[in-house]
Design a binder for these strands. Structure first.
Lengths: 164, 164
DNA sequence: TTGGAAAGTCAACAAGGCTGACATAAAATC
DNA sequence: GATTTTATGTCAGCCTTGTTGACTTTCCAA
């Protein structure tokens, strides 16, 4: 266990503890996506569709370019997904009023319904986990995750309505 | 903000807080995989190879079946990845001594070297995050993640050497 | 000795990433 | 007003990594 840290207060930074954190992320992310994945199967959609729906719901009227920077994929890849959501009537693409080159994306009622179904499944698991461990642990959870993000993603993250 | 919770102590369970948790997971996981992904590109490997290498390193002499249950993919999918790692000399597949049908997987020196490179990148980011937020937050982080896992994954998780 | 488990492999397919090239409309700039 | 830049869409083709199904070989254990 000699980790070279010296102080006992740094034992949480040992390689073993860090590895535990890494595996915790891996296994927890699996759980995190498991419920939505099951629901998406019924509609023959994938995780990519879920992500698009999620962020369009979070920021209605968002542009394609903004969505691209949040999702970090190419426009070709996003377009394939978006195309289907629009064709299936889950997403509406509105030509920009000030700048007509832009497309503003909003969920239709049908899209909002699927979003609600997916979101509720995910929130339900998160709620159970939060409830099981209490508010202080939740604070720590959020602090570590935010510290683990890339800087530009941290920017997108803190833009949620409920800014702390 | 009326959430029906009643007590102020349950404000951390509002839908807004849960959504923040969901997005935190999404963005943090991206950061979590970003560094290894960059390294893997140099070797033309993908995340699937990383996962295999990681868990073989964690449990040397593990069997293919055990690895399958940890990774949650089909044997055909794992076989493709494993095949390449073996052909490239990163993984050695040893015929079981007691049961000769089983293959026991171990990293070669070359495989261990790549594992170390990937692991160090990932630990480095985790270390920075842990250090930035302190031990109490780390405890909360681990508690929430563990509570979010599926039960069978929680089993695999607590099997790490450094069991708490 | 035979049933079934463990493992490997072939084939075919799909989702969802990627690059590159090209088209169009509209805004911005010169 | 002409040109350039920006935002978006789309075609084609490639890769990784997941899937299902079918089949074989090996070999433990009842």
């Amino acid at each position: 266990m000699a980790e070279g840290g010296g102080s006992d207060s740094l034992l949480f930074l040992t390689d073993e503890q860090l590895k535990k954190g890494i595996e915790a992320m891996f296994f927890a992310y699996r759980g995190f996506t498991a419920d939505p994945d099951r629901i998406l199967e019924n509609y023959a959609y994938g995780r990519a569709h879920h992500r698009a729906i999620h962020f369009i719901n979070r920021s209605p009227e968002t542009t394609v370019n903004n969505l691209l920077s949040i999702l970090g994929v190419t426009k070709q890849s996003l377009n394939r997904v978006l195309r289907r959501l629009i064709d299936d009537g889950l997403v509406e693409s509105r030509v920009g009023k000030r700048d007509k080159r832009e497309r503003h994306l909003v969920l239709t009622a049908k899209g909002a319904a699927l979003e609600a179904e997916l979101s509720e499944a995910q929130r339900s698991r998160m709620r159970a986990a939060f409830r099981a461990v209490g508010p202080d642990a939740v604070t720590g959870f959020r602090q570590v995750l935010e510290a683990m993000m890339d800087v530009d993603m941290r920017h997108h993250f803190s833009l949620l309505k409920d800014s702390e």
